[in-house]
């Protein structure tokens, strides 16, 4: 095939690392969630690349990618609802300042 498998894997690794940086470095909860979505996308690229290049006759990789998609949507829905709820009570979604357990 025209494109080597390694290219896809390196691209997915780069996307994962960018998402990783977003999760670690941002203060605001919404971009942190976006970083998580980027990481999940990187995972899906890996699933599909391996499906295409290793076993294209059995769509196992695609099925798993679809499950990841569903879980990502559920995660985003609950995560954002949590953010909205925290915003209502604490008037901030800056994760540095969400320290309920400090008392």
């Amino acid at each position: 095939m025209a494109i080597p498998l390694t290219w896809y894997l390196i691209l997915a690794a780069a996307l994962f690392c960018i998402g990783f940086y977003g999760v670690l470095a941002r203060r605001n909860a919404v971009p942190i969630l976006m970083g998580v979505e980027l990481m999940l996308n990187a995972v899906n690229i890996n699933f599909l690349a391996f499906w295409r290049y290793v076993r294209p006759e059995e769509p196992v990789g695609q099925v798993f990618a679809i499950f990841v998609l569903a879980v990502a949507a559920a995660e985003a829905a609950v995560g954002l609802a949590l953010i909205i709820s925290i915003y209502r009570t604490r008037k901030t979604i800056n994760v540095d300042r969400i320290d309920l357990l400090k008392g």
């Binding site: 941002r26 953010i83 909205i84 915003y87 979604i93």
Partner: peptide, 18 residues
């Protein structure tokens, strides 16, 4: 939608990164 719902605090917080 979530950004809009909780936005009045969003862009004014000092610094995007920790």
């Amino acid at each position: 939608f979530a950004i809009m719902l909780s936005r009045s605090m969003m862009d004014k917080e000092s610094g995007a990164v920790n």
